[in-house]
């Protein structure tokens, strides 16, 4: 407890805490849809693009944020579009773009300033990176992301689960893609300077992957990801303060630990479930007559249509 009180006496650590919590929350929420849509690497790609943009900005003497945000937003658009048009596989596209952006950054840096502490802190993150303005920006960002998830939750689910169906039933899919791309880009740029370009993508993918071990509903996964991200970040930051380790790497390691823990828990749970069907009379028995049969047979029975006779449901025939 005293450690936390001590940490919070430093204003820059308070800023890092607030900004970091908000950014990891956003990253985790967006991460759920990104991971499920198989865009896990997009965080990585975008952070490298951001690194390239920031290096150029530093070399030219501009301030980094106003340059990198638009560039990264553009890259995010491009990456999401490229899969839609189907000209190139998205993993290849992301790999290509991230490597190119990284090299641009490195070449520009070595031609001008050389590897300054500034640039290397963008690579691996710096706890000092969160300025007052960044904290405000992350507050706004997280308000937007949270608001979007609360208000459009069901549409986000529909788009994530099945794009073609959502499109066919009148959900504006490209609108959601655009919004996701912009928000992801801003999250990455904001979080990158604290976590580092190399590590920021873990904030996007870890919470979602970890939650997917344990939770079976989309709602469960979303909520658990948000909570996990915040908890892991706090533990990681405290650890980094206590053991004087780099903040970004510590947070990632805590996330990894959480993943392994959940994974273990899943294994144990699954084992228990596998034993259970052998015991007769489990509570999930759907209907009479299915009591003593093995699990598979039971499932088969419930799933079968009730012969060819008329339906018994309330929402029955709508024919005139």
């Amino acid at each position: 407890m005293s450690v936390i009180a001590e940490m919070l006496s430093y204003p820059f650590l308070v800023r890092a805490f607030i900004g970091g919590i908000l950014v990891s929350l956003c990253a985790a929420l967006l991460g759920v849809t990104l991971v499920l849509k198989r865009y896990s690497m997009i965080g990585d790609g975008l952070s490298h693009v951001s690194f390239g943009a920031i290096s150029v900005a530093v070399a030219a003497g501009w301030s980094p944020l106003p340059v990198s945000i638009p560039v990264v937003v553009l890259a995010a658009f491009f990456l999401l579009r490229i899969t839609e048009s189907g000209h190139m596989r998205s993993d290849a596209a992301i790999a290509m773009i991230s490597a190119s952006a990284l090299s641009v950054g490195i070449v520009v840096t070595s031609l001008t300033t050389g590897m300054t502490t500034d640039v290397s802190s963008y690579m691996f993150g710096s706890i000092l990176a969160m300025s007052r303005g960044d904290v405000w920006l992350s507050a706004v960002l997280s308000a937007v992301v949270l608001g979007m998830f609360v208000i459009c939750y069901h549409r986000i689910f529909a788009v994530t689960f099945d794009e073609s169906f959502a499109k066919a039933t009148g959900v504006n899919v490209s609108f959601y893609h655009t919004v996701t791309a912009v928000l992801t880009a801003v999250t990455i740029v904001l979080g990158m300077r604290m976590m580092g370009a190399m590590l920021i993508s873990s904030l996007v993918i870890f919470p979602a992957l970890t939650s997917m071990r344990m939770f079976k509903s989309f709602r469960g996964v979303v909520i658990s990801s948000g909570v996990l991200a915040v908890v892991c970040f706090c533990i990681g930051m405290t650890g980094s303060y206590v053991f004087s380790t780099p903040a970004g790497a510590s947070v990632v390691l805590v996330n990894l630990a959480a993943f392994l823990l959940f994974w273990l828990a899943e294994m144990i749970l699954r084992k228990r479930i596998r034993w259970q069907p052998l015991k007769p009379g489990r509570k999930r028995t759907p209907s009479a007559g299915g009591g003593q049969t093995p699990k598979n047979a039971r499932k088969w029975k419930t799933i079968r249509p009730e012969g060819e006779h008329a339906p018994r449901s309330a929402g029955g025939s709508k024919r005139q």
């Binding site: 069901h154 689910f157 529909a158 169906f165 039933t169 509903s217």
Partner: peptide, 9 residues
């Protein structure tokens, strides 16, 4: 959750 998402349209 999946079935309910159909009612959106």
């Amino acid at each position: 959750e999946v079935v309910l998402s159909g009612t959106l349209s």
